[in-house]
Design a binder for these strands. Structure first.
Lengths: 223, 223
DNA sequence: ATTATTTATGAGTCAACCTCATTTTTGGAG
DNA sequence: CTCCAAAAATGAGGTTGACTCATAAATAAT
């Protein structure tokens, strides 16, 4: 059927428009971006834009929605769910930091205005961050993570830290810095994770205490 | 002199414009805000706005600049520098969270666009966050804080967490939540602070060392 | 009281988003 | 292949809102 070919064509054009819009918005910001520029870069007439998107804001929303949608798919495949929760969290953090550094401008467009469409975007972000929540909940179920943590606060620590770090890196002209991830994960482990030795083996300190007790006992009995 | 009276008048009018602009921008966003509305609310003609501010963006920048300027003054007086560093940090966090919840929309305007004036705003923010850096550095000097932490990363954890938590609270229609501050401070203490009991009572390791020393003494005297 | 200077005004200009009458393309029927 | 109806594309023009500038009002000085 030619209708499927047609559909592919239309989807390709939509993708083309979104790509052009993403570029122009990222380079010039929302106000600086000209609909005429976007149309020219997508190689269509200005009026054609409005067949696909109601207005400029709607076009930006579509760009942002695509970003978070792709990000969610990527995040769900960024780690192996059989790994320890902490390793999953590290992988997610690394993936997220990479992604928001690469498309830093788009992230900045996510939270803006007080219009009605802001709800849509929030739902999309909410769906995205669910990946984090699942890791943490699995960690709690497995007994690795302290069960009485406040998940939304942990989530804000996680994503807030990564976004601010990304901004710092971008503004300084730097790129991905693994130590950001390492330190964040270390922080969360220290505060939220139960001590590992619970199900592993005795720590050095435990062993030392046992040997000390033996020696003391020997000395006492000998003395 | 009438010139000082005149200057006061002009400053009062500037403050009036900034207040009106802050309200309209917060309610309607940058694009939704109408210069005519701002002028009407400030009880001046639209053209008069342009005697004080070059254009709409410049006016927004002034609003944002005033916000961060006031915030810096408040932050510097928000705590007693003779307190322990951790208490200072808690006070700063509480102050910051309150402030950005109250003026949440303004915070959102801080990072936008890629224009030349963005540098000014970044300097202002940089000056503001210096308060945090000073607390941490004093903590290091006093020996309370681990000296090999990466300050900018700690800063991004601090402000990133607070801003994201503020967003969560505002979007849920809630207001200030002290537990956000408490948990953040607890997190930073656990990861960055040296263990307090060093000058209180013995740690497990200290206890071990004491017992070892006793044993060695017993062996020497006995042998 | 008069003049000079500074400050304020709002009607008009212009730029950019968006609409819609017209044109072009597409896809099936004869 | 030709014709036609329906869908898609176009870009000139309407509309809106930021910004300007000639004019007016207010202030300061002589």
């Amino acid at each position: 059927m030619s209708s499927s070919i047609q559909r592919q064509k239309i989807e390709a054009r939509e993708a083309c428009i979104l790509a052009a819009a993403g570029q122009v918005f990222s380079e010039a910001g929302f106000d600086g971006a000209r609909m005429a520029d976007i149309a020219r870069r997508a190689e269509i007439a200005e009026g054609t834009l409005y067949l696909y998107y109601k207005n400029k804001q709607d076009l930006l929303d579509a760009v942002v929605a695509k970003f978070w949608g792709d990000l969610t798919i990527g995040a769900e495949n960024a780690f192996d769910t059989t790994l320890p929760a902490l390793a999953q969290l590290a992988a997610l953090a690394e993936y997220h930091l990479h992604a928001i550094i690469d498309d830093f401008a788009i992230v900045g467009f996510t939270y803006r205005g007080t219009n009605n469409q802001a709800d849509q975007r929030r739902d999309q972000v909410r769906h995205y961050v669910r990946v984090f929540d699942q890791i943490l909940r699995r960690g709690i179920d497995r007994g690795d993570v302290h069960p009485d943590i406040v998940i939304w606060q942990a989530r804000d620590i996680f994503y807030g830290t990564l976004e601010f770090s990304a901004r710092t890196l971008v503004l300084r002209g730097l790129s991905f810095d693994k130590s950001v991830v390492t330190n964040l994960i270390s922080l969360m482990r220290t505060s939220y994770w139960k001590i590992e030795q619970t199900h592993n083996h005795a720590t050095p300190l435990d062993e030392v205490l046992v040997r000390l007790a033996r020696i003391e006992a020997a000395l006492e009995s000998g003395g």
